[in-house]
């Protein structure tokens, strides 16, 4: 989600809420010992818990998309801003102290959740643009494995085409007529290209992202130089499949990059989501125990 001008009302709302809360908190803190159990402290705590619960409802909204309660964008914005506001509300509630082990853990979890969320919002603001710019061959993340298989098959086909084109007498489509045609002999070059395909292209296409990092074709310039060398060796008729192979490697490179960006884009959720779940559970326990005592 991009943080754009449509967020401005939420920004003003957040500023206003923090300003009002501060205006309430300062005289309250000067008058008495601020604590979560006082009337004002309890109010801040209820607001904070309310924001947390609302932020958690986003996961339900995503799971049950068929329930059309507000647009996804509004839910996302509310999740973002109210979730972030939970932290100052918690600080006001706790009077900027973490007294007690459960309170300390809650405070730490809140900080982790809010800051991981802010980091996630930053990534979701910047990475899609970067993805659009750097991964023109972007595909559905979960389809990358399928696409990768297709790329390998396609590459094999192009490699066979190159071989057949330059060594027709020895290729599967060889005919007597063709063997009589006078063609330059490229047997050594074709052998070298076959070896290049077997040693570099195919392993690169088959490799997982991390394994591919160690391979030469990962570097675009190096790959371009290699393919250009083969184009120089072969007649122009063989260039299109070689270029296609280069393009396939480029697509594989982009898919690897997409995986990396996707991991950035969604990896923070591996912290944000579990910690949020623990936070919500412990916050409820904290509320129940606090009301009990």
């Amino acid at each position: 989600m991009r943080i754009d001008s449509t967020h401005r009302p939420w920004l003003w709302f957040s500023i206003a809420l923090i300003a009002v809360s501060t205006a309430v908190y300062i005289p309250y803190a000067r008058m008495t010992t601020p604590a979560g159990s006082t009337g004002i402290g309890l109010t801040f705590g209820i607001i904070a818990l309310g924001f947390m619960v609302f932020a958690a409802l986003l996961s339900l909204r995503k799971r049950y998309r068929i329930m059309r309660i507000g647009s996804a964008r509004v839910w996302m914005k509310a999740h973002l801003w109210l979730g972030a506001l939970a932290l100052p509300m918690v600080l006001f509630h706790a009077a900027f102290h973490a007294r007690g082990l459960l309170a300390l853990i809650l405070m730490l979890l809140t900080i982790i959740v809010v800051f991981s969320g802010i980091y996630g919002a930053y990534l979701q603001h910047t990475l899609p643009t970067r993805m659009f710019r750097e991964v023109p061959y972007e595909t559905i993340y979960d389809q990358i494995g399928v696409i990768q298989e297709q790329l390998i098959a396609e590459a094999r086909q192009h490699a066979t085409n190159v071989t057949q084109m330059l060594a027709p007498a020895r290729g599967p489509g060889a005919t007597v007529t063709m063997t009589l045609v006078e063609v330059p002999e490229y047997s050594s070059e074709v052998a070298a290209f076959d070896a290049f395909f077997d040693a570099k292209i195919e392993p690169f296409l088959k490799a997982e992202r991390k394994a591919a990092l160690k391979l030469e074709l990962r570097h675009e310039e190096e790959a371009a130089r290699e393919f250009e060398n083969y184009r120089k060796l072969f007649p122009p008729a063989a260039w299109p499949p070689i270029t296609a192979l280069e393009d396939i490697c480029s697509e594989k490179r982009q898919l690897d990059h997409q995986i990396r960006l996707h991991h950035w884009l969604h990896g923070w959720l591996l912290i944000h989501l579990p910690v949020s779940a623990a936070l919500l559970l412990l916050a409820f326990i904290h509320a129940v125990v606090a009301l009990h005592y």
Partner: peptide, 24 residues
């Protein structure tokens, strides 16, 4: 995370109420 939170709460509650104290 939820299981860990529940486990910690359960273990803490069985030992003492210190974890639930609102402060020293």
């Amino acid at each position: 995370a939820i299981v860990a939170a529940v486990a910690w709460i359960s273990i803490s509650a069985s030992k003492s109420a210190q974890a639930f104290s609102s402060g020293p």
